[in-house]
Design a protein around this nucleic acid. Structure first.
Length: 504
RNA sequence: GCAGCUGUAGCUCAGUUGGUUAGAGCGCCUGACUGUGGAUCAGGAGGUCGGUGGUUCGAGUCCACCCAGCUGUACCA
C-alpha cells in the first residue's frame, strides 16, 4: 500500500518541449565551432562584449501596441517591483541597449561580437528549438555600405572556416528600401496599406519554397496548403501582382549591375527604392572589389527577413547543398542572417544611430554540419581508469591516479562498488583507452597490470569461448610499478590519442 | 494559431470481430566465471496500454473531451 502511494507521487522526469540536453560530443563540437567563428570575427577587428540573458521587456521592444502584456513569443515574467522582464530572443536588441547605455565611452564606430543562448517561445520543430545559440557581430555608428559589405564578406569567410566549401553556401542580400520601393510603385505606400504591405512581403519571402504559383496565390486571393488549411492573400489586382512578380523574377538573370537596372525600372520614381538601389550598387562595388563573386555573395529579390527592425540592406546565409529531398533528409536553409537597423538605438536616444550586424545560428548550423559529416559525432576517448582490487588499498590506487594526472593524463579512480567485471564494464562504457589493475600478486612483485581496452576489443573477435577470453587476458601486460606513466603513455600513443587535452 | 496523422516496457514495435494474468526483439540488472570488457547460456527487473469521463457483464481495442508528439501551414525579431 505504501509502495502504491510512493508510486503515485513519483515525479516524472521530463524535458520541456523545444529544449534539449547536450552531451559531451555535442558540447565538444560546439566548442570547436565557436572558436573557429571567434577567430574570423576577431580577424575582422571585432571585440567581445556580452550582455545578460534577461532584459527589461521594453528594452527589447516587445510590448504589443496598446497592450499591458509582452508579446507572446518571448519568455517574460514580472520582477518583484512588477516591471516586466524577458529572456532575450536575439543578441541585437540587447546590444542596442548596451550601446545606448554606454554611448559616451565607446569608440565609434563601435565593433563588437558576442555568443550566447537566446530564447523564443514558439512552436519547436526539427532543428528548431526554444533555446538556441547565436554568434553575433555588429558595427554601430557607421552608415557606410562598406560596413554592410564587410558583414557579408565575414559571413562568407566564417562559413568556409567552418568547413562549408564554397558553393555549398550563399550569402544572399537584398534591401528593405528596395522592397519598400517596389511596394510604393504598386501603390501600397502610406499608413493605410501597412497590413497589405506585410502580406506582400511575406509572400515574396516564400518564393524560394512555393515558387511562382504559390506566391501568386498569396498575392491574390490566398492559398490552400496540403493539409487543406487556407492562408488569406493580399488581394492585389492583376497589374500589381505582375509588377511584384516581375521584380521577384529578374533575380540572377545577369550580373549585379543589370539586376539593379531591372529593379530600378520596376521601382520607377520611388525615392526610397532608388536610394536602396544606390546603396546596393555601392555595396556591390566593395564586395566585388574584394573579389567576393556571385558564388559567395549574391543579390536576391526574395530575401525579406523579419519585419521588425531592419531598415536597409538585409542578409541571409543559406546552405545550398542538396537537402530536403525525397529521402527525408532535413532541410537546413537559412543558418544566419542580419542587416542594417538604423532605428534600434534611436529608441533610447534622441538621435538616430546607424548600425548593421550579422548573426550565425550556431545550433542549426551545427546540425547541418553534422549532416554534412563535418562534425565528428563519435564520443571522444575517455579517461584511464584505475581499478580498485583491494578496498583497503584505496590510497595506493588514488596515488596512481594522481601520478597520471600529474603527467597530464586524464585519469580517474573507480568510485563505484562493483567487482572487477563491473569495473571493466564501466571502463568500457566510459570509452577508456586502458585500465590499470593491481591485485595482491602484482603488488607482491612490485608490478601493475595495464589492459589496453582498444586493442583488446579487436582481439575479442577471434576468441570464441568465454573461458579462453578470460584466461588469455587479451592486450594486457605487466610493468614495474614505477613505469606506470610511461606504459600508459605508450598505450595512448599507440592509438594516436593526445594526452594533454580533454577530448570532450 | 489552423489542419491532418500518431500515442502500448528505456528503445523499435505486435496485440484478431471488445473476452482470462498485455507480448516479442533489442537494451538494462544478476549469475554461470568467488581476479578481467566481448560472445554464449540461464534467470530477473521494468507497463495504472498518454489522461479523464462514457458505452458495455467485460475496454489496450468503441465514443467524447483533454494532453503530448510528428507532418504541413501560419508566425519567426
Amino acid at each position: 500500500m505504501a509502495d502504491k502511494t510512493k508510486e503515485a507521487n513519483k515525479l516524472k522526469a521530463r524535458l520541456p518541449r523545444g529544449l534539449a540536453d547536450r552531451g559531451p560530443a555535442e558540447i565538444a563540437a560546439t566548442r570547436t565551432m565557436i572558436e573557429k567563428i571567434r577567430e574570423v570575427y576577431e580577424r575582422y577587428g571585432f571585440e567581445p562584449v556580452e550582455t545578460p540573458a534577461i532584459e527589461y521587456t521594453d528594452a527589447l521592444g516587445k510590448f504589443l501596441p496598446d497592450e499591458e502584456r509582452p508579446n507572446e513569443g518571448v519568455f517574460s515574467f514580472q520582477d518583484d517591483d512588477e516591471q516586466w522582464l524577458s529572456l532575450r530572443y536575439d543578441l541585437t536588441a540587447p546590444l542596442a541597449r548596451y550601446v545606448a547605455e554606454n554611448f559616451d565611452t565607446l569608440p565609434k564606430p563601435y565593433r563588437s561580437y558576442r555568443v550566447g543562448w537566446v530564447f523564443r517561445n514558439e512552436k519547436p520543430g526539427p532543428g528548431r528549438f526554444r533555446q538556441f545559440m547565436q554568434f553575433d557581430a555588429d558595427t554601430v555608428g557607421s552608415s557606410a555600405p562598406a560596413a554592410d559589405a564587410e558583414m557579408c564578406m565575414m559571413a562568407a569567410d566564417t562559413m568556409e572556416a567552418l568547413g562549408v566549401p564554397r558553393g555549398s553556401y550563399l550569402v544572399k542580400v537584398n534591401s528593405r528600401k528596395v522592397l519598400d520601393g517596389v511596394l510604393e510603385s504598386v501603390g501600397l505606400g502610406g499608413e493605410a496599406n501597412s497590413g497589405k504591405r506585410l502580406t506582400v512581403l511575406r509572400a515574396i519571402d516564400k518564393y524560394d519554397r512555393l515558387g511562382r504559383s504559390g506566391v501568386q496565390a498569396l498575392l491574390g486571393e490566398g492559398r490552400k496548403d496540403e493539409s487543406g488549411d487556407f492562408t488569406r492573400g493580399a488581394g492585389l489586382n492583376e497589374k500589381q501582382m505582375e509588377k511584384v512578380l516581375n521584380y521577384v523574377e529578374v533575380q540572377l538573370v545577369g550580373d549585379l549591375e543589370s539586376v539593379l537596372k531591372d529593379w530600378s525600372r520596376e521601382i520607377g520614381s520611388s525615392p526610397t527604392g532608388q536610394e536602396g538601389i544606390r546603396e546596393l550598387a555601392e555595396f556591390g562595388n566593395f564586395v566585388r572589389g574584394a573579389n567576393y563573386g556571385p558564388d559567395r555573395i549574391s543579390v536576391e529579390s526574395s530575401v525579406v527577413r523579419g519585419l521588425e527592425y531592419y531598415t536597409g540592406p538585409v542578409f541571409e546565409v543559406e546552405l545550398t547543398f542538396p537537402t530536403g529531398g525525397a529521402d527525408g533528409s532535413p532541410r537546413f536553409g537559412s543558418v544566419g542572417g542580419g542587416g542594417r537597423y538604423d532605428g534600434l538605438i534611436a529608441r533610447f536616444r534622441g538621435e538616430s544611430v546607424p548600425a548593421t550586424g550579422f548573426s550565425i545560428g550556431v545550433s542549426r548550423l551545427a546540425a547541418a554540419l553534422q549532416h554534412l559529416g563535418k562534425i565528428d559525432a563519435r564520443p571522444g576517448p575517455g579517461p584511464v581508469v584505475v581499478t580498485v582490487f583491494d578496498r583497503d588499498r584505496l590510497a595506493d590506487y588514488q596515488a596512481m591516479v594522481a601520478r597520471l594526472r600529474a603527467a597530464k593524463i586524464r585519469a580517474e579512480l573507480y568510485l563505484g562498488g562493483g567487482r572487477m567485471a563491473a569495473q571493466l564494464k564501466y571502463a568500457d562504457k566510459r570509452n577508456a583507452p586502458c585500465v590499470v589493475i593491481q591485485g595482491g600478486e602484482e603488488k607482491a612483485r612490485g608490478e601493475i597490470q595495464i589492459k589496453d581496452l582498444i586493442e583488446g576489443a579487436k582481439a575479442a573477435a577471434a576468441i570464441a569461448s568465454h573461458q579462453e577470453w578470460r584466461e588469455s587476458r587479451p592486450a594486457q601486460f605487466a610493468v614495474a610499478e614505477e613505469k606506470l606513466v610511461e606504459a600508459v603513455r605508450e598505450v595512448l600513443a599507440r592509438h594516436g590519442l593526445r594526452q594533454d587535452q580533454p577530448s570532450s
